[in-house]
Write a protein that binds this DNA or RNA. Structure first.
Lengths: 145, 145
DNA sequence: ATATTTTATATCGTAAGCGATTTACATGAT
DNA sequence: ATCATGTAAATCGCTTACGATATAAAATAT
């Protein structure tokens, strides 16, 4: 029985569980908008800067294009983004928000921050703790990406 | 442009990315054992306590049985666990390690801790930082599960 | 004892993720 | 200019996740 191999000693299991549980907390809120968490991530990327090629979106999210392409195809079906061939580089697909996608930012702003605040109300961590956590996660991310 | 909706301000995106990147770091190591990360989690549960019903494994991993059942079916095909009906309660499936599954603990011990240590060598966090991170993640997990 | 409800697991459908390969276009080399 | 190399997306196959539903056995109610 090796203590290194005990579940309770695994930082990765904690990351894996925390990520899943936080995504689950988002789910009912995102359902009101009719989107999933990864779709919400794509929207945040596009709200920040509209009309980007698939590759840029994938890099920003640290995902492969073979994950992002089908994601964008589903979002196109939902009518929240549109895709068109790049003009200088015809290999690219430039992804842009539709009017519906743009309008979702206000709705998200009304629903998500408050909703997540409520869900994390009984979490004992302070704003400071969360900032600290963010920094530590950034260290892990930077050293692995 | 709402700063609350910026990707950089999202603790959840960090958790999601860190979890994926750490799993990716495990992948080449687990490939040597011929298993995936969730399968490794199941093995850790069974190495700790062999012969458990599906429900107990699912609870330990905070997963639903409809995730764990197919996972166990694949592991059975790989010959690392076996499943048999519960004797007192015939609804249960008792999952046990095979000889192959039991032997994998030593191989995992030879490969995983050292391999992950190497991969995180350039991560600036100390042992103390990791313990602190573990505590903060536990707070998030406890308040959401 | 029989009917109702709960519980344990399995099945189905859909959306991610990701390794491997393919296709179309662009870029650089000769 | 032609050919080789590189790059952007897309496609394929497989494994998670998870909501919803089904099925069988157990527990409870009447």
């Amino acid at each position: 029985m090796h203590k290194e191999l005990r579940l309770d000693n695994q930082i990765c299991f904690r990351l894996y569980s925390a990520a899943r549980l936080v995504m689950q907390a988002y789910t009912p809120l995102l359902n009101e908008l009719g989107i999933t968490y990864p779709q919400y991530l794509v929207l945040m990327v596009l709200w920040e800067k509209d009309s980007q090629p698939v590759n840029d979106i994938a890099h920003r999210l640290m995902l492969e294009t073979n994950t992002v392409t089908p994601l964008l195809q589903r979002m196109e079906k939902l009518g929240i983004v549109c895709r068109r061939k790049g003009e200088q580089d015809k290999r690219q697909q430039i992804v842009s928000l539709t009017e519906k996608g743009r309008e979702m930012e206000e709705r998200a702003f009304d629903i998500i921050p408050k909703g997540m605040g409520d869900r994390l109300a009984n979490c004992p961590l302070s704003i400071n703790d969360f900032q600290h956590l963010a920094g530590e996660l950034d260290s892990v991310i930077d050293s692995l990406k």
